[in-house]
Design a protein around this nucleic acid. Structure first.
Length: 597
RNA sequence: GCAGGCGUAGUCUAGCUGGCUAUGACAAGGGCCUUCCAAGCCUUUAACUCGGGUUCAAAUCCCGGCGCCUGCACCA
């Protein structure tokens, strides 16, 4: 059995991609109309496989880690992305050379000339390009007008075009918007995580590399909200000693292997929380079948960090396209919650409770609106709001010394009549203080993980496991060694011959397995070896064969995919045995001795 | 998006200096045979990427669209 990995050059990648299409894993969408780059359909096998990976993710994050699962719309009004920063940062102004028609990012052309070129408006960029007489770096030609390019798909809500909206480029934003509600749902306990699985949409300029860069793709994201001032993170102990491959941005050319705990204590990884989710991610990747030596964590360089991120580590897996990002684990700090607070006025904080409520002397100002109202009329509320922002102690002093109390409102500076203000000082019990939680976000690209899982499960051999010698002219024997829990089909059911009463025994067995929730494949066509081969190609871990002996002894054989070994099991136990094998409660070796091997 | 290359059944492919009913293999469906690892026989299904042009005649030559590959650019 050839275990060597898939490389871009060894031909296996194209063998595999042919298999994936032939067997119904995935294929380009809208093909009969010529296809559209960046969109793929999941076929019957791909849908099941993807679903199983999602199931595993849910088991891990929602069940084991206790994340709160939500499911929000894919379309959000423009205002959401204005405040999240995606509208600005996701939009680039392009200019095109009028001679050679090469496109360039306008702000990049100005990088060496002015600072913060990326923060300029469209008009400012255009003026700056003109004033500095910037030419095409490619051919020296003059540059054309600016065009906007936004990576988000734009649409409109309702009739007309006055309510612009976008398809979400990540699922995260809805979770941030829902934070106050989720915090209450979680009975105001922090830390806690929120999970969402759904589609993300990015209008990539030129999507290539198949499922690895799609315009519509499946993501599974977790947002873990925590108090940045809390001491340590006890859960980190689970992964403290886990050794992982790390590529730090201080030394981007070298991968080093070390425990997560030392990476955190040396400051390579910025917090225990981030380290913890790197551990969770690593363990999840192992669980769906990605080998240890084919993965590494790479820290983002400062220049590639997303606008919201303070630190970010990607889980990369070595695929036929090289090292590819599968999961991004970003420390988003308080960025998003603060942005949406600014944008909406909605408070997005949590309570940091003191161990014991403390007694605190609190000075408050109260405003007598009966006095203020008639004086300021419409502006009275604004004055009130301005006063409440003043430092009570300072106001107290002003009042005592007889100085005027002044505030600035939209009409300009006004004096607040002393008679409208009263200062009170009282002892108060304070239970805690409010803070904006920080967020660590593990964001999984489900389709990419599926590709990685498939590539690492794919093996080519000379011949099927138990054949004496290789048959010629058929190409390699292909096996997808998927873990039983994620393989799309769990069990093949074959009557050895399509006659003599064998189908009559086989059909009820398949029915029972399906009733138990196991996806099966009934096949009576061709030789038995051909049927095993078909199942091996799609990664079916077990096959049940009904032979002539079955009629006498009431037993059937179960064949294990990777070894070809078969064991006899009574028909009455078959559903339980297959079910336990698939859920990995037992392994094949736990069964009785083989009859054919 | 630019430049170059490519596009023939489900897959791989022959034909492509224009010319008869478009080659072959594998896969797939039906049947025969077959008592456990892609056997064999019979049979069936099935394609020139799309649009336009040149020509008596286009898979073949030309133009354009779409897609794929490679490089450049892009990748929050």
């Amino acid at each position: 059995m050839s275990g060597s990995p898939i490389d871009p050059d060894n031909g296996k990648a194209s063998e595999l991609s042919a298999l994936l299409k032939r067997r119904g894993f995935f294929f380009p969408s809208y093909e009969i109309y010529g296809g559209v780059a960046g969109f793929f359909d999941m076929g019957p096998m791909g849908s099941l496989l993807k679903d199983n990976i999602i199931k595993k993710w849910k088991d891990r994050f929602v069940i084991e880690e206790g994340f709160l699962l939500v499911d929000c719309p894919s379309i959000a009004p423009e205002v959401v992305f204005r405040h999240s920063g995606h509208l600005d940062k996701f939009s680039d102004m392009l200019t095109r050379c009028t001679d050679c028609s090469e496109p360039f990012r306008a702000d990049h052309l100005l990088d060496d000339i002015i600072e913060n070129a990326d923060s300029l408006s469209e008009d400012e960029l255009f003026t700056a390009l003109k004033e500095n007489d910037v030419k095409c770096p490619n051919c020296g030609g003059s540059l054309g007008p600016l065009e906007e390019f936004n990576l988000m798909f734009k649409t409109y809500i309702g009739t007309g075009s006055d309510r612009p909206a976008f398809l979400r480029p990540e699922t995260a934003q809805s979770i941030f918007l829902d934070f106050p509600l989720l915090y209450r749902t979680n009975r105001e306990k922090i830390p806690f995580g929120v999970a969402q699985i759904g589609k993300g949409f990015r209008n990539e300029i030129s999507p290539r590399q198949g499922l690895l860069r799609q315009r519509e793709f499946h993501m599974a994201e977790g947002e873990f909200f925590f108090d940045p001032e809390a001491d340590g993170f006890p859960a980190f102990d689970t992964y403290r000693d886990l050794k992982v491959n790390l590529v730090a941005n201080t030394d981007p050319d070298n991968s080093i292997r070390k425990e997560l705990s030392s990476a955190v204590s040396e400051g390579m990884i910025c917090s225990e929380v981030l380290g913890y989710f790197m551990g969770v991610t690593h363990s999840f990747a192992r669980e769906i079948g990605i080998p240890e030596d084919r993965m590494r964590f790479r820290e983002h360089l400062d220049t590639e960090m997303a606008h919201y991120a303070r630190d970010c580590w990607d889980l990369e897996v070595l695929t036929s396209y090289g090292w590819i990002e599968m999961v991004g684990i970003a420390d988003r700090s308080a960025y998003d919650l603060e942005q949406h607070t600014k944008g909406s006025g909605q408070e997005m904080t949590a309570m940091r409770r003191y161990p014991e409520p403390i007694q605190k002397e609190v000075t408050t100002i109260s405003v007598n609106m009966k006095v203020l109202g008639p004086i300021f009329r419409g502006a009275a509320k604004e004055v009130n709001d301005a006063v409440s922002l003043l430092d009570p102690a300072a106001v107290k002093e002003l009042l005592e010394t007889g100085e005027p109390v002044k505030v600035v409102i939209s009409q300009g500076e006004v004096e607040v009549p002393p008679g409208s203000l009263s200062i009170a000082t009282e002892e108060k019990r304070v239970a805690g203080e409010r803070f904006t939680p920080h967020v660590v976000e593990p964001s999984f690209g489900i389709d990419r993980l599926m590709v990685a899982v498939i590539e690492h499960a794919y093996f080519e051999a000379e011949k099927s496991p138990l054949r004496e010698e290789a048959s010629d002219g058929e190409g390699p024997y292909r096996v997808m060694r998927l873990l039983p829990s994620i393989s799309p089909v769990k069990c093949g059911v074959f009557p050895l011959m399509n006659k003599d009463g064998l189908p009559e025994l086989a059909i009820p067995i398949e029915k029972d397995l399906r009733k138990c929730g196991l996806i099966t494949y009934y096949d009576h066509s061709g030789s038995i070896g051909r049927r095993y081969a078909r199942m091996d190609e799609i990664g079916t871990p077990f096959n049940v064969t009904i032979d002539y002996e079955s009629k006498d002894d009431g037993c059937v054989t179960i064949r294990e995919r990777d070894t070809g070994i078969q064991k006899r099991v009574p028909i009455s136990r078959i559903v339980n045995v297959i079910s336990d094998l698939v859920s990995e409660k037992i392994i094949f070796d736990d069964l009785d001795q083989p009859v054919i091997s």
